[in-house]
Design a protein around this nucleic acid. Sequence first.
DNA 1: TGTACATCAGTGAACGCGCGTTCACTGATGTAC
DNA 2: TGTACATCAGTGAACGCGCGTTCACTGATGTAC
Lengths: 225, 225
Amino acid sequence: MAQSDTVTRILDTAEVLFAERGFAETSLRNITSKARVNLAAVNYHFGSKKALIQAVFSRYLDPFTQRFHSALDELEKRYEGQVIPLEELLETMATTVLAVPAERNSLKVFMRLLGLAYSQAQGHLRRFIQDEYGEVFTRFTELVRQATPELPDAERFWRLHFMLGTVIFTLSGLDALRDIAEKDYQEHVTVRALVRRLRPVVVAAMNAPLPPSVDEEVYANPKTQ
Amino acid sequence: MAQSDTVTRILDTAEVLFAERGFAETSLRNITSKARVNLAAVNYHFGSKKALIQAVFSRYLDPFTQRFHSALDELEKRYEGQVIPLEELLETMATTVLAVPAERNSLKVFMRLLGLAYSQAQGHLRRFIQDEYGEVFTRFTELVRQATPELPDAERFWRLHFMLGTVIFTLSGLDALRDIAEKDYQEHVTVRALVRRLRPVVVAAMNAPLPPSVDEEVYANPKTQ
DNA sequence: TGTACATCAGTGAACGCGCGTTCACTGATGTAC
DNA sequence: TGTACATCAGTGAACGCGCGTTCACTGATGTAC
């Protein structure tokens, strides 16, 4: 086994198992036996299970942030100081998200991992991701701010997270949802088809009318459609 | 300790710990020591950890489905066979979701649990929820179908799940998001305030224009806002 | 009213098991002189 | 060119620990006659 093929095999196997069952539910013995690698190799190469989890994320997020920064650079150059439209920003993000894992056919895995990062306990992981990759997200939200000057800052913040929820929830639960959709509507759903469906929904959501301020709020007439 | 106060204490403690850290990360020893109850009591009263997890869900979902059915009955009576507008349906669902846990001040816990049900491995849990509570969800989606006749069935299916993602992701990650929002925008966010923000977004998302069919799809002119 | 027995909630201690991690070790390859 | 030593990837076996579950038991309350 040449000069750390082992490391790659551990990462490849770990990301699949983590995505399928979560971090706590996946033991190092699961990983190493499936990867046909010695149990002690994980601790030898990564130091600990925590560090392995972080390494799995880095392998996706490092190329992602790099590409996303370049894509945003290009966009800024193309618009020469003019405001970049929201659709362009969303499109660029979608394209980058799709491009990265395409190299190893596992967008699903990437999305499941992101979903887990948010929902699983693993406080260390949220901190790690924020520290290492928070910057590119900040850059993106600043551009979104310029593209949506009419939105109050807090409203924009919440709507971005609403949409983040939509995307992560849908794509990370894709397998289960796809099974239902296939059974009920006889259509096979690709990730790209889903992104096509997501586009108008996300744009409409970001451009939705502002909620009434608290004192204006009244009981809606139930007869108004 | 009178006639199964113990059961209540176990459930009260378990739901909080499960919501905070997930199922696998919460041991029976965590629960029983915090609830100041004997370790063996969980297996005595519930039979197993799995059954305890399901009991925690039933305690929320039983009253929820009951109230939701009544609310839908009332709505159908009020509209006497006419189509119930989408806004009414969404409003009714929101009201019911808010009403149930209000009785014990833990909407947050309820939402975290729902989020976990989707994202954690726990296959038994998804099956349990589908079997026990699938019916009311089916009834609701049928009413939504009547309210949105212009949407293709598959499109409606996906949009409902997009919105489910938004709600579950936002409310289940509420604490973390609230911390950020409070720091950056100096506003304290209540769940009710969030629901107020969610309303127009969800409506706009459901009413978004249909995506172009695959053959119509062309590269958008980057200059069009 | 009294006694014998059954039921039930709860307990304390132990069970075997799988976990992440550690440690002493091997054997191949690279480096210094 | 040859030898001694260092470095490095990888290994096999064991470590202690916390886990869910089980089991024999207690003591209070209810029921039958």
